[in-house]
């Protein structure tokens, strides 16, 4: 009988699966908070945040492979979705705490930490705070779910189609940023920030963490909804 005991077993299994990636992410966060700013000098945007974001996407994408195990053992899509979202929530909470911890340590050690978040909520990045924790939590959760969606989409396509779609998306994004930066006479790495700011109404140097939290929450909610709909229609071959 699939009972709460079953749910615990499944959750444990799912969590274990993302656990390895998560550990790597946490270690990466702590290291890069010191290493990269030091190695690359202080720039407007540290690589740390991009790395954390990408890790979120990867955790999400990789976690979907546990669904095969779920189907083999008669677990419903509903249960799998619930378990995955729970694992994502736990992972992003841990990650967010890790980021705040990294800021704390960096600050205390006197290193200059500057990053992505600063562009949207100036003064927030590099400072450990509750709202910063929330923003990172929601952001990471959304990224994980987005990674999961990417896997679900790719599963429906052949390997060749998936490769070309991935390449197209990557190149498309790069070209868009390059064009925008060129048009607005900005450095390439400033491009995306300005773009998003223009759309979202943030920036102007004023700290607007609440607005950022709102936007991130909205996006995450949308993405999570899309994820649950897609999971409900998931089919596997074999």
């Amino acid at each position: 009988m699939k009972t709460s005991a079953t749910n615990r077993v499944m959750l444990g299994f799912f969590a274990r699966f993302t656990g390895a990636t998560l550990v790597g992410a946490l270690v990466g966060i702590l290291i890069s908070a010191f290493l990269f700013p030091t190695m690359l000098g202080v720039g407007r945007y540290s690589l740390t945040d991009w790395l954390i974001g990408v890790m979120g996407l990867i955790i999400g994408a990789v976690s979907l492979s546990v669904t095969g195990f779920g189907f083999q053992n008669g677990i419903s899509r509903r249960s799998m979705t619930r378990s995955l979202l729970l694992v994502f929530a736990g992972s992003s909470a841990l990650c967010a705490v890790g980021v705040q911890l990294a800021y704390l340590i960096a600050r205390l050690s006197g290193a200059r930490v500057n990053g992505l978040l600063n562009a949207y909520a100036a003064g927030l990045h590099g400072v450990a705070s509750v709202i910063g924790l929330l923003i990172w939590l929601v952001l990471l959760f959304g990224l994980m779910v987005a990674g999961g969606i990417a896997t679900l989409i790719m599963n429906k396509k052949t390997k060749r189609a998936a490769f070309w779609w991935g390449l197209l998306t990557y190149v498309g994004i790069g070209v868009t940023i390059a064009v925008w930066s060129f048009v607005n006479d900005l450095a390439f790495q400033q491009g995306p920030v300005v773009m998003i700011r223009a759309v979202v109404g943030l920036g102007g140097g004023q700290p607007q963490p609440l607005l950022l939290l709102l936007w991130v929450s909205l996006l995450t909610a949308l993405v999570t909804y899309a994820f649950t709909r897609m999971m409900a229609r998931m089919e596997i071959l074999g």
């Binding site: 009988m1 195990f69 083999q72 008669g74 677990i75 419903s76 596997i236 074999g238």
Partner: peptide
């Protein structure tokens, strides 16, 4: 469909290897 109680009584062995 999506019925765990029913699926608990059904098992499918196919060519897919879905265990880690």
């Amino acid at each position: 469909v999506e019925n765990e109680a029913a699926q608990n009584r059904i098992f499918l062995m196919s060519d897919a290897m879905l265990y880690p």
